[in-house]
Design a protein around this nucleic acid. Structure first.
Lengths: 138, 138
DNA sequence: CATGTGCATGGGAATCATTCTCACACAGCT
DNA sequence: AGCTGTGTGAGAATGATTCCCATGCACATG
C-alpha cells in the first residue's frame, strides 16, 4: 500500500531545523510553537517564527514530534518516540509521560467494527496533576 | 475550594439561545460555530456570530453540548447526552456515535495512579470511515 | 399590567495563532 | 567554484474567537 514511490522528502539540514530539534530534545513536556520560538531567541539561535512552524510541521510529518491541541486551540509540540503511544500530562507543570495501551487499541478497533467503521484511528490523552504539583506549590 | 456556593448561572432564556439549542438538536455530528451561525441565518433565525459563540460556551458549561477541536483548531460542537462518553466519528461525513468505555476509564485511572498523578481526566476520540462512506465514493 | 434592573445581544474592531508571499541565502551536487 | 532549488525571514494576510459597549429584552416585582 504505502508505496515508497513518493520520493523521500530529503530534508535539507539547516541551522534552524537543527536548533529546533535540539531544543525539543532538551525540553520535557509539550510547548507551543510561540514558546519554542521565544526560547530560541533567548538562546541566541535566532530563527524566524514562520520557520519554527515549518520545522515543527516537518518533524511531525517525519514522526519525530507529537502535536497536542490545547484547549485554546494553540498547538503544543514535544519530541516523542516513533512508536504509537499516548500521553499522561500534568496540567500544572506540563510534565509528560508516554504510555502504551494495548487494551484501548483493541477496544477502539472492536467498537469501530461493531458500528461498521473502517480505517480506524484514535486519540487518547490523560490529564492529571503530578505528584510534585499536588504536594506543594513547587 | 470549588464550593457549590456559587449560585447557578441562572441562564436567561432568549430567542437566540433557544434557536441554537434547537438547531443542535436537529443536527447529527459535530458542527463548527461558524457553520451553525450560517445555518441559523439560512433558517431566518438571524443571530449574531458573537452570540452563537456565547450560547455554545454556555451550553458546554452546562454539559448539554460537547466540543471537539478539529485538526485545524476549529472547534466543533454537538448536542450530547450528559453522561460521560466518547465519540466514534466518521471523518468523511461527520456522523457520530456516542460510546461508553468502562475499560478505558479504569485503565486511565490505573496508569495515572502508577505515575503518581491525581485528579485524573481523559479525552478519547475514535475516528474512522463509516459504512456508507466506505461503500461508495459518495 | 406597568416598571425597573441587569444580563444578553450584535456588529465591528481587536486579538492571536498560523499561513502565505516573495526576494534572497545557502545546502548539496557536479 | 558554480548551479539549482529548497529553506529562510519579515511582514502581510487569513481565520477563528473574543472584546467593547450602546441598546434590547427577560424576568421579578409592585
Amino acid at each position: 500500500m504505502s508505496s515508497p514511490d513518493t520520493a523521500p522528502p530529503a530534508r535539507r539540514q539547516t541551522r534552524q531545523r537543527t536548533a529546533v530539534l535540539e531544543l525539543l530534545d532538551e525540553l520535557d513536556g509539550f510547548r507551543s510553537a510561540q514558546d519554542l520560538h521565544a526560547l530560541l531567541r533567548e538562546r541566541g539561535d535566532s530563527v524566524g517564527l514562520a520557520t519554527v512552524y515549518r520545522a515543527l510541521q516537518a518533524l511531525v510529518d517525519d514522526g519525530l514530534v507529537d502535536v497536542l491541541r490545547s484547549g485554546e486551540g494553540e498547538a503544543a509540540y514535544r519530541r516523542c518516540s516513533p512508536v504509537h503511544h499516548h500521553h499522561l500530562v500534568c496540567r500544572a507543570c506540563g510534565r509528560t509521560v508516554e504510555v502504551a495501551d494495548p487494551p484501548v487499541e483493541r477496544w477502539a478497533a472492536r467498537i469501530a467494527a461493531e458500528h461498521g467503521f473502517a480505517d480506524v484511528q484514535h486519540e487518547l490523552e490523560v490529564f492529571g496533576t503530578c505528584g510534585s504539583c499536588a504536594a506543594g506549590r513547587g
